[in-house]
Write a protein that binds this DNA or RNA. Sequence first.
DNA 1: TGTACATCAGTGAACGCGCGTTCACTGATGTAC
DNA 2: TGTACATCAGTGAACGCGCGTTCACTGATGTAC
Lengths: 218, 218
Amino acid sequence: MTVSTPGPYHHGDLPHTLRAAAVDVIVDKGLGAFSLREVARRAGVSHAAPGYHFGDVRGLLTAVAIEGFETLYAETSTAASGVEDPVERLEAIGRGYVRVGVRHPGHCEVMFRDDVVDADDAHLQSAGLRAYGLLESTIADIAESRNPDIDVTDAARLCWAMVQGLVQLRAKFTQLDEVLGLTSVDVEDRAARFTGLIVHGLLGPTPRSEPRDRSSRS
Amino acid sequence: MTVSTPGPYHHGDLPHTLRAAAVDVIVDKGLGAFSLREVARRAGVSHAAPGYHFGDVRGLLTAVAIEGFETLYAETSTAASGVEDPVERLEAIGRGYVRVGVRHPGHCEVMFRDDVVDADDAHLQSAGLRAYGLLESTIADIAESRNPDIDVTDAARLCWAMVQGLVQLRAKFTQLDEVLGLTSVDVEDRAARFTGLIVHGLLGPTPRSEPRDRSSRS
DNA sequence: TGTACATCAGTGAACGCGCGTTCACTGATGTAC
DNA sequence: TGTACATCAGTGAACGCGCGTTCACTGATGTAC
């Protein structure tokens, strides 16, 4: 990733390169060691260049977070498109989420870190709500067609929290595997079981493919 | 928390005070702004004092993480003790976990951050494995008594990831609540439903109180 | 086609700051006799 | 009980470092005429 050649004075698309370099830094040095100067070094430009485009550290990280939410929305909506059954759609979204987590760990490390990002940024908020909205609307569909007792907002958060937990703990699991002497497992497969659990949990302890008569309930 | 009086030359239990101050800093400034000097300032001692007791930043944060795992073990094992049924015990542990997350967010922010902590530290590893072991052994009990098909190691991680996700996203949810104009919800109640989902998912789609004949397994 | 000028994109030297670390020190406590 | 000494706990001045930010600058591109 590191560009060592001096390169032309005018860079093709420096903002893009800087975002990529920022992700690079996050992934292999961690957010703690993140700095504009390190990003500039990796992008092969002067240390003042990131400031020119993004203002400050917060601005650059916010741009990375926005990119992350856009990727998340793109991946999950693609995964969901064309899937008729809302339950299957939810599973597809869950898998898509985890895929993003696995493929873009740098973005994910920033997306929910309001202490590090400009949480008031309008683009960031709309990108985040757009991704969240897809999840929530799918659960609303499930509620409508399968179980009207579901608290949609709350269920959406359960799903989000669970999948996010999976993504966040992936690194820890990997380390635990080493400590415990176990081999690492297929994360996406785990995600499938995850979403399966969520769905079964949402539909109640005895899910059926056809809704049964459950009218007498508190 | 901040001590402004000069205080006596010899502090009663400075290591303890420094750990508390460290948690303080993490909670309201974030790990990004964490520094030994800031911790010393809050503890009301010279900036060299933390170095004397903990060596460096990593050492202090490792001590905080150990404290966190010890608290986690204490809380979950207390919650689990005396509960006969392993399923109920797992639920109690899940609730205990979330309680720790809610009450000790500073510790939790550090416990799984290997980039910031000395992951090779023997005390840290044993404290972590002790907490994890309680969870795993409970799931092993469930597997034994209810469903031998459960992959115990993997199920334990699912649980851990889910509850951890809940804890980590709590702050995000709070912020989303503001964005979406909703009131915040009872986190521990959410945890109960969480663990319920896990348990039902683990026991399969049609859980029974008595184990059925399943002897033919690979 | 050529020239002058404006604007954009990135440079690099300079600055002040907070940090971690070191180190000679000092104040307090414990111990030997 | 008193004195000398060792050890422990914390100090504070000093240092070098990487950082973010500023700012006059320069190289490249676009536009007007």
